[in-house]
Design a protein around this nucleic acid. Structure first.
Length: 276
DNA sequence: CGGCAAACCTGCGAGC
DNA sequence: TGCTCGCAGGTTTGCC
């Protein structure tokens, strides 16, 4: 569930059960995920109230009432499952289980264990090793055509893998890189530095639109999915190109099929004609 | 520094 | 049925 819109959706869902709530029980079911959990992690969380939840890039930040911040990344397969503390046995790959004083249970389930949890102080957050090198948030005014044009200078790589570089701009993952380029009509193999100022502006606009629409859709699908299972981060989209190899190109009359190629080891989906 | 493959893990579907 | 292979929404590391 892990690009910016999904993380944003998970944050919003978690806020409902966590913000303003005290953690009564914290269970670690292994010693770490991608990195080890911080020393005494469970003890340091237990009894703390979560004042606020925020997001930076694809990281969640749980701001505690004692000046510490829990940093959480979902990796590729991480999910936050919300339920009740009903004594049910943990699911496979439930690595961290939190129970609030209100009786809500939040399980961090991550089959591939590319996710992580860490801690930083409020003051040390921006300088934390995960955050220090990050680029601007894509949905802020700091990300505009001019900034993108400057950032692409001297980069001869194809634009698509460059969009995944979180030091350039954060939050774009493999799905939304393809979707944004399609919307902007820019071919994924174009050398990044070859994009004109006009194309940079177009691409920025496309990225912002795609991410904003995905967040909006996540909000609505979250709402009905939550009733039965309480699961967060589930996302139902209709993608224009992603995972649509061989299907007709949507939204234009070019009659081409969506193609798939591999760039820097990851799948890219595109329409050769529309993104000519 | 830029760029790329490999590595970290498990699960699933396709093909034999 | 069972095996192997390739692929999966991310990030880091190590090598050229």
């Amino acid at each position: 569930m892990p690009e910016l819109p999904e993380v944003e959706t998970v944050c919003r869902g978690l806020a409902v059960v966590l913000e303003g709530h005290r953690l009564a029980k914290v269970e670690l079911r292994r010693t770490g995920l991608r990195i080890p959990f911080p020393p005494d992690f469970a003890e340091r969380l237990t009894g703390r109230t979560i004042a606020r939840i925020s997001r930076r890039a694809k990281y969640m930040c749980w701001h505690l009432d004692d000046g510490w911040v829990v940093i959480c990344h979902l990796g590729m397969s991480g999910r936050m499952v919300i339920g009740k503390d009903d004594g049910a046995a943990p699911e496979k790959h439930d690595h961290v289980i939190l129970v609030t004083e209100a009786g809500d249970k939040i399980s961090f389930n991550d089959a591939r264990r590319f996710g992580l949890m860490d801690m930083a102080t409020e003051e040390g957050l921006a300088a934390h090793r995960f955050f220090a090198a990050l680029g601007p948030e894509p949905l802020t005014d700091a990300f505009d055509g001019k900034m993108l044009k400057a950032a692409l200078a001297g980069r001869s790589s194809p634009i698509k893998p460059v969009l995944l570089d979180q030091t350039l701009v954060v939050g774009i993952g493999n799905i939304y890189a393809s979707e944004s380029l399609f919307r902007a009509g820019i071919h994924p193999t174009r050398p990044a530095e070859s994009l004109t100022a006009r194309e940079c502006s177009k691409l920025v606009k496309a990225v912002k639109e795609v991410l904003a629409e995905a967040i909006a859709a996540g909000g609505s699908s979250l709402k009905d999915h939550r009733q039965p299972s309480g699961e967060l981060g589930y996302f139902q989209h209709s993608f224009a190109v992603y995972d649509r190899e061989g299907q007709p190109c949507p939204g234009c009359t070019c009659r081409e099929s969506i193609r798939r190629m591999t760039q820097a080891g990851r799948s890219t989906y595109y329409c050769d004609k529309r993104q000519g």
